[in-house]
Design a binder for these strands. Structure first.
Lengths: 224, 224
DNA sequence: GAGTGGTCTAGACCACACG
DNA sequence: GTGTGGTCTAGACCACTCG
C-alpha cells in the first residue's frame, strides 16, 4: 500500500510507473477502483489524476475499455499567445511600437478564402525590442471592428486582445523569405528566412487576419 | 434561475457571459457558491467548469481574491507532437522514409550546451509524402540509447516515440535558410525559407536532440 | 481574521463500448 | 448484459491571500 495523498501525488506516482515501464506501453493499468483502494484515496481523486495524464497524452482512457498506456503517445506542445509587448517585456527588453500604415484597401486574392472579397482596414506596424526590430504586424481588420480607434500608440494587437478576444480562430507557423517590405521593416538581408505566425480570428463573420513576421533568428520556444 | 445541467453546460454558460460582456474584462464574477445556487448544481460542478475556463486562459482565479475576467487573456495554442509518419498519413498522403546517414561523430560546438562535448550517434533521414520530400530529420542520439538498433526502415523518430517517450524536453520553432545539404535533401532552392522544429529530450542525461526541417511551404497549424 | 478557491470523500447514477 | 470511466452531489476541511 503506497502512501498517496492528493491527486497530484497520485498523478506523479502513475507517471513514475509509466516512465519506469511498470506499466508498459500498450498495457492496461488497474481500474480506478483498484488504484483508489491501493493508494487509500477516493476514486474521484484517482480519476482526477488519470484524467490529467490522459489530457497530457500519457494515457488513453475509454469507457469499458479501461485505461491504457499508449504505444505511441501524442504529446501536446503549448504556446502562450498574448500581447507582443508582454513577450518583449518578459525577455527583459524595452518594447517599442511604430505604426507604418493604416488605410482601407482591397483584400488580396490570397486572403479571399479567409476574409472574403472586398475592402478592409489594413494595418501595418512594427514592434521593437530595445530599439531593434522584433516583429512586423501585418493585419487585415473588418471595418466594423475598432471603428474610430487609432493605432498610433496602442497596437492593434493589444487593442484586439483586450476588446475582441475570447473568439474562435486558427493559427499556423510557417517560414517566409524576406521581401522588400520585410527587408525595410526588419532591417534584414533580402531573402532571409523568417518565422511567421498567421492567425485568423472570426466570430460569425471574419474579424481579423494577422501575420506576425519575426526578426531573423527568432525562436518560438516552449517546454514539453 | 438558469437551467444548467453538467459542468460543460456550466462552462458554456460562463463562456457565453464572458463573450457577451455580461462579465466584462477586469470584473469579478460571482463566487462558486452563488453560481452553484443560481444554476442549481453542486459547487464542485461550478468549480470544474470555471477551472476549465481558467486553464484555457479565459478566467483568473485566486483564493480569497475571487475569480476575474482577465483584461488581457493569455490563450494557449497547442500542437500535437507525434510520429511524422502519422502526420503524413493524416494528410491523406503515402509516407516514405530513407536513411541518409548513421554514424558516430563529434557533437558540433553549437550543441555542446544541450548535449555536452564528445561523440554521439548522428542520424540523418528523409521523410517523404507521396514520394516528395516532406521533412528532414537531423538527430544526435546518446550512444547508450537504441544501442544496436538500425534505422534503415524504422525511423529514429518512430523508435524513440515508442521507447524513450514520456521524458522531459524543450521544443522550439524557427526559420532557417536552405543550405547545400537541405537543398539536396528537400529538393528546394538554395536559401529557401524553411520551417524548423528543434526538440531536445533529456532524462537525467541528454537523450536526443533533433531538428526537423520541413519542405518549403509547410505550415504547422492548429485551432485556438 | 475571514472570504474564496482547492481539494477530498463516499456514494450514487449514467453513458458508452465491448463481448 | 456488464464493466469501466464520466460525472454529480453534499458536506467537509484546508490553504492561500486580501484587507
Amino acid at each position: 500500500m503506497m502512501a498517496i495523498t492528493g491527486w497530484q501525488a497520485a498523478r506523479d506516482e502513475a507517471l513514475r510507473r509509466i516512465r519506469a515501464r511498470d506499466w508498459p506501453p500498450g498495457s492496461r493499468i488497474p481500474d480506478e477502483a483498484d488504484l483508489a483502494a491501493e493508494w487509500g484515496v477516493a476514486r474521484a481523486t484517482v480519476n482526477r489524476a488519470l484524467r490529467d495524464l490522459a489530457d497530457a497524452g500519457y494515457l488513453d482512457r475509454r469507457r469499458k475499455g479501461g485505461t491504457r498506456v499508449p504505444v505511441t503517445p501524442v504529446r501536446m506542445a503549448t504556446f502562450a499567445i498574448s500581447i507582443i509587448r508582454h513577450d518583449i517585456e518578459a525577455r527583459g527588453q524595452v518594447p517599442g511600437y511604430r505604426l507604418l500604415s493604416d488605410r482601407i484597401a482591397p483584400v488580396p486574392e490570397a486572403l479571399h478564402a479567409q476574409l472574403g472579397a472586398g475592402a478592409m482596414r489594413h494595418v501595418v506596424a512594427l514592434h521593437t525590442a530595445d530599439g531593434a526590430p522584433y516583429c512586423l504586424e501585418d493585419r487585415w481588420l473588418a471595418p466594423r471592428i475598432a471603428e474610430g480607434i487609432r493605432f498610433d500608440t496602442l497596437s492593434a494587437n493589444e487593442w484586439l486582445v483586450g476588446n475582441v478576444s475570447f473568439a474562435e480562430g486558427t493559427l499556423a507557423f510557417h517560414a517566409i523569405a524576406a521581401d522588400d517590405a520585410l527587408v525595410r521593416a526588419l532591417a534584414c538581408a533580402p531573402g532571409a528566412a523568417l518565422l511567421a505566425l498567421d492567425r485568423e480570428t472570426r466570430d460569425l463573420a471574419p474579424i481579423t487576419w494577422v501575420r506576425l513576421v519575426y526578426a531573423p533568428g527568432y525562436r518560438m520556444e516552449t517546454g514539453l
